[in-house]
Amino acid sequence: MNEIAEHHSGAHASRSTYWLVALILAIITLLEVAVFYIPFLRTVIAPILLVLSATKFALVAMFFMHLRYDRPILTAILSTGLVVAAAIILALMLLFGALRLMAPA
């Protein structure tokens, strides 16, 4: 089995998909900055921004990093790292009493 031949056998995103994803990423970034400047969103800014940036993260991973088209083992590898890292961040913030800073004041 040839590595390269096999590697190309999977489905691919087209160039237009890449441009579309980039456009969506740009729009989300605009939204993020907008949210930052809108005063009445102050109390819910953290959850909104976290959802937005998680969306961006997922889009880049799925399309630009081809996880959507690649073997599930690669998604599993990334998820392992992400889950452990996220759990450690949450646990440390709780231990340091820092998590309330993220919640509506």
């Binding site: 590898i77 990334l78 790292g81 452990v84 890292a85 450690i88 440390l92 340091f96």
Partner: peptide, 26 residues
Amino acid sequence: KMAMWVFIGSECMFFGSLIATYLSYK
């Protein structure tokens, strides 16, 4: 390719630890 993904998984913890510290000390 798999190696790069494994390395990226590890890097999640590297930046995770840095971000955790930043947020804990905020």
